[in-house]
């Protein structure tokens, strides 16, 4: 009987790549989501100020 080749490190490397890539993608999704939420909050705030000019800061008025 021949022993199977010792390829354990390759096996670990393979699964590290698989889970690593998935993790990176998940993180990228979360990061993009948070950035967009921040943008959304900022933009809705700006819009509200635009609709209600009195509330606007003095510095921004012409």
């Amino acid at each position: 009987m021949e022993q199977p080749a010792n390829t354990f490190t390759y096996f670990i490397a393979g699964y590290a790549v698989i889970f690593g890539a998935m993790l990176i993608y998940l993180v990228s999704l979360v990061v993009r989501w948070h950035h967009l939420r921040q943008d959304e909050a900022l933009l809705t705030q700006l819009e509200a100020e635009k609709a209600n000019p009195q509330a606007r800061d003095q510095a921004f008025s012409p």
Binding site: E2, P4, A5, N6, T7, F8, F11, G14
Partner: peptide, 16 residues
């Protein structure tokens, strides 16, 4: 199971 010739690396196959 562990593949007889290739050993552990063959297990990459499933997720590959």
């Amino acid at each position: 199971p562990l593949e007889r010739v290739m050993g552990a690396v063959q297990k990459v196959f499933y997720f590959h």
